[in-house]
Every structure is written in C-alpha cells, then in structure tokens.
C-alpha cells in the first residue's frame, strides 16, 4: 500500500509542477494548493502506513496495546496543513490584489519588480 500511495503522491507532484509552470497566476495558485497535499502525502508515506489504528493510547493503558500508526509524521503534517492553508490564502489574496491593480493575471506582464531593460546601476563611488 505504500507503493500505491507513493505513486499517487508522485502524480500529485507531477500535476502541481505542471500547473506551477503555466503562465497564469490562478493556475499557479491551484498548483500551490496541490503541492501542499503532495508534500503531505510524501511525508505521510515516508513514515510508513498502518491501516486504521490511530496513535491513541486507551485511558487504562500507559502504552498502546497494538502497533499504531506512526504519530510523528502526523504531527508534522497537521501543522503543515494549517500553515499551507494560511499561505495559500495569502497567495490568493496577493494575486487577487495584483490582478485588481495591474489588470493582468499573466506572469509575462506581471513584471513590475523586474522590468524589462532595467538600466545598469550607476558606476562610481
């Protein structure tokens, strides 16, 4: 089952990279959203999978009675999900504002910070 999930995670990566490479900000954003899931799946799979046994210790025991799912990747992913959501929201609003003010969602024309034919910096001291 790790194999299947590895392949699925690879598919996530391929699609998200393909979207990141496109020239339209909104597609890039979709790519970012997918990339978060791809990475989470990668971490999850790398921590090995266990079916259906969550890492919860019953109240009358000190350690779990049976082998549980690996808790460490879960803890990492849990915060990663929330952070990638905040990040995604930030990028979404950023591109929305850029679209409003520059009237474009094409990365070819969104080059305010690095304009074409930038003059050379002044020589001298």
């Amino acid at each position: 089952m790790e194999t299947a999930l590895s392949i699925l995670s690879g598919l996530f990566f391929i699609v998200s990279i393909y979207l990141l490479l496109s020239k339209y900000v909104i597609r890039v954003l979709l790519g970012v959203a997918l990339l978060g899931n791809a990475v989470n799946l990668l971490i999850f799979t790398a921590g090995r999978l266990t079916r259906e046994v969550p890492p919860i210790i019953p109240s009358h025991l000190d350690v779990p009675a049976v082998a549980t799912a690996n808790p460490l990747p879960q803890a990492l992913i849990l915060t990663a999900i929330v952070i990638s959501f905040s990040f995604f929201a930030f990028l979404l609003v950023l591109s929305f504002r850029a679209y409003q003010d520059l009237k474009s969602d094409d990365t070819e024309t969104l080059r305010f910070a690095e304009p074409k034919n930038e003059p050379t910096p002044p020589l001298g001291y």
Binding site: E2, T3, S6, I7, S9, G10, F13, I17, R48, N70
Partner: peptide, 26 residues
C-alpha cells in the same frame, strides 16, 4: 519538466520505503 521532477520524487519515495524504517523517534 513536470514529469522529470515529479517522477524523481516518486522514485525517491519508492526507494525510501524499501529501506528499513528507523522507529526510534516514534
């Protein structure tokens, strides 16, 4: 390009899960 980079990650992950797993931290 997407295939190149994505498949690299996929293969990396496949190779990782074939290694023995160190459970010390968990």
């Amino acid at each position: 390009v997407a295939l190149l980079a994505g498949s690299a990650l996929m293969v990396l992950l496949l190779s990782v899960i074939q290694q023995p797993f160190d459970t010390a931290l968990s």
